[in-house]
Design a protein around this nucleic acid. Structure first.
Lengths: 114, 114
DNA sequence: AAAAGAGTTGACTTTCAACTCAACATTTCT
DNA sequence: AGAAATGTTGAGTTGAAAGTCAACTCTTTT
């Protein structure tokens, strides 16, 4: 069973020795909100808020994002404005790619320009 | 200057010889809404509504979607649940891929399983 | 010309995500 | 123990997306 978003967040926050209030204040949300999130009383924050939180906690946002199924607005905008990109994702979806295959594509991506 | 969403929709709808009312009814929205959309009085519909409209009009949704920068929920869910996929898109974004490069990646995608 | 069909417009509504506020409980420090 | 810090909970707010509804006008058909 994978960790819930709340559990994951709590673990990271504790590892960084921050109180809910500190994290909340630096992130710009109410501290009681952090509490509810950590206890999974509310659904995870908006994607952009998650990114902010991760900046404060100084961790990459991908892991937490993936737990929520949400996509940050910068990413949405990237693919949203390209018909070929949307098509690409559609095809990838139909193939049900594994994480390894995505990574392999990532390497091919880098080779694209060489 | 690229076509607006409203212009593009209107062109397609007319090409298919449908009235606003017909399209609206089959799509499940109010006909006055179609009017406003076509005249760009309101922002484009939700991504999933665009997909529905395209089904009724019998055209692939990518072109219209790309005009809006929106992403259908099925696509969001696909990439949203995979950290590697998000990472991939991030990298692609940083590289500012062209449409052709996206298509090239699409071909590599198909070769992935062979 | 009158009726039907098609399109436009302003005002309003509904729904929901994403929180905040205030009060209370629990834990930790001195 | 008392105070300070930290965490939890229920209720309420806010803003924006995504439309609807009713009334009107313009166009076409008979």
């Amino acid at each position: 069973m994978p960790k819930t978003f709340g559990q994951a967040l709590r673990d990271i926050r504790r590892a960084k020795n921050l109180s809910q209030r500190e994290l909340a204040q630096k992130t710009g949300v109410d501290f009681s909100y952090i509490s509810k999130i950590e206890n999974d009383r509310l659904p995870p924050p908006a994607a952009d808020t998650i990114v902010k939180i991760c900046e404060i906690l100084d961790v990459p946002p991908e892991q937490l994002l993936a737990l929520t199924g949400k996509v940050p607005s910068e990413v949405t905008e990237t693919i949203g404005t390209s018909a070929a990109a949307i098509q690409f994702i559609r095809d990838a979806q139909a193939m049900k790619l594994t994480e390894e295959e995505w990574q392999r594509l990532g390497r091919q991506l880098r080779r694209l320009r060489r």
